[in-house]
Design a protein around this nucleic acid. Sequence first.
DNA 1: TCTTGCCTTGACGCCCGCGTCAAGGCTTAC
DNA 2: GTAAGCCTTGACGCGGGCGTCAAGGCAAGA
Lengths: 132, 132
Amino acid sequence: MRIGELAARAGTTTRTLRYYESRGLLPARRGENGYRTYDEDDLRLLRQIRTLQDFGFDLEETRPFVECLRAGHPEGDSCPASLVVYRRKLAELDTLIEQLTSVRAQVGAQLARAEAAVPGGPEPKCELGGHG
Amino acid sequence: MRIGELAARAGTTTRTLRYYESRGLLPARRGENGYRTYDEDDLRLLRQIRTLQDFGFDLEETRPFVECLRAGHPEGDSCPASLVVYRRKLAELDTLIEQLTSVRAQVGAQLARAEAAVPGGPEPKCELGGHG
DNA sequence: TCTTGCCTTGACGCCCGCGTCAAGGCTTAC
DNA sequence: GTAAGCCTTGACGCGGGCGTCAAGGCAAGA
């Protein structure tokens, strides 16, 4: 299979595949005409990468999973190095979610305070004259 | 006050202030020698910008707050345009937190599944021989 | 043979909020 | 006078994951 077909089957682009290859993540064999050649295993690796990318993993973070698959393991996370990445990611996510939740609370409080100070804020269609 | 002092008092850098000016966010008067000149009001504007930046607001999103202060209002969020930004930000935060929470759950599930499949994963120092 | 459509490499663009360096001018203290 | 330390503008770099164009090679059908 050539690069265009692989890209289509994985729902990505040829540019992306060349980029992965440039990063050493998904090297390709070459046909006699110089075209990149891929097989079903490459598709599996690519899908592993894409899944993790969709989760917000950096490209580098997908490397252990790819290497794990390439080493013949049944899943990309069948290797300790992948689990390390999982755990680090979980910690990052927890920290991030905590921070965002804190920010959300602060922004929400600011909004509530500001709305209370502005006439017509919470219920803009009532008491237009503001005589009450 | 000149740019260095303002930067120091706001806990930022001169480069940042020039950048804000280039974006039209924090224009400066000029002394006869060409030096930028700021006053205490500029410091207030700058602190408003920095606070929102710390909350993860884009620079453009701070503009209504800055203009509100510059218009003479007591707070940057004393204007409707600022409240719009607040509400939009809250919605963005909610969406993002939701997505991250979902990802966290999926990654956590993947980790649990992978750990269950790998001997020595959850408790690496026990049963080295794995005879149990 | 010509066209169409795939493929190749190379290289610049984008986003965003600055960091950092360059080359020079002004000010101030000694 | 001169050195230090502030200021000026201009311009390139960075990180990440590609998009997009350029210029050309190769393959297959009419």
